[in-house]
């Protein structure tokens, strides 16, 4: 559990704080229960990745995170106004030769979709990746059915880099897997423009 005596070090951290949310390290006791709740919403899972939506055994999920946590660069997304944890964001598959990484994001609380929390979390992780990890590019993939996600990533500065045709198949309908990326110089231009 988060120690209240050290709370200032987390909540006042400029690197991980945005306009609406902050990014905080995972608490494996508390947060896996939240993720389990979010996963009840199969639409959340279907938008999140290409795997089949599923229900996961809590004990096995915990064992997975305990084993893999050192290799994960995952954060919980916490609202600034009421400290509620509403989603997750993660950098993964770093390529240190070129300085690139993939980013994945999910807002688990459905009623908070489309309110700018995801875009704000993305802006924080871009700033962190480019100014603290010395990355040159950050990339993601998103399904064409996820118009809310696409709009949010465009707003954060991602550019379309192409798509794989019909890679997601749900209820007999195929949706494209869209690839987007942002380079550091593009991100820097956005900072001077705003």
């Amino acid at each position: 559990m988060e120690n209240p005596n050290y709370r200032g070090a987390i909540v006042n951290n400029p690197i991980f704080t945005g306009q609406l949310v902050r990014l905080i390290a995972m608490d494996l006791d508390e947060d896996l229960k939240l993720i389990e709740e979010w996963n009840v919403d199969s639409e959340y899972q279907r938008l999140l990745d290409a795997g089949a939506a599923n229900r996961y055994n809590f004990k096995l999920t915990k064992e997975f995170f305990e084993k893999e946590i050192e290799g994960l660069h995952a954060f919980m997304i916490q609202k600034l106004d009421d400290d509620r944890k509403i989603g997750m964001i993660e950098l993964e598959a770093f390529n240190w030769q070129v300085g690139s990484a993939w980013v994945g994001i999910g807002i688990g609380v459905r009623e908070l979709w489309g309110k700018g929390y995801g875009t704000d979390a993305m802006r924080i992780i871009l700033r962190y990746g480019f100014t603290n990890l010395n990355l040159n590019r950050i990339q993601l993939d998103v399904f064409s059915i996820n118009q809310r996600g696409l709009a949010s990533y465009e707003k954060a500065g991602f550019k379309h880099e192409g798509h794989l045709n019909g890679n997601l198949l749900k209820a007999g309908v195929r949706y494209d897997e869209v690839f987007m990326g942002i380079l550091r110089r593009e991100w820097e231009q956005l900072q001077t423009a705003s």
Binding site: N95, Q97, V98, S100, N136, R137, Q139, E161, G162, H163, L164, N165, F179, G181, L183
Partner: peptide
């Protein structure tokens, strides 16, 4: 289908990764 800009480093140069 996809051109990930500046995502491969070979022979002192940075290249696009093409799917």
């Amino acid at each position: 289908a996809v051109r990930q800009r500046e995502n491969v480093y070979r022979e002192g140069k940075i290249w696009d990764r093409i799917f």
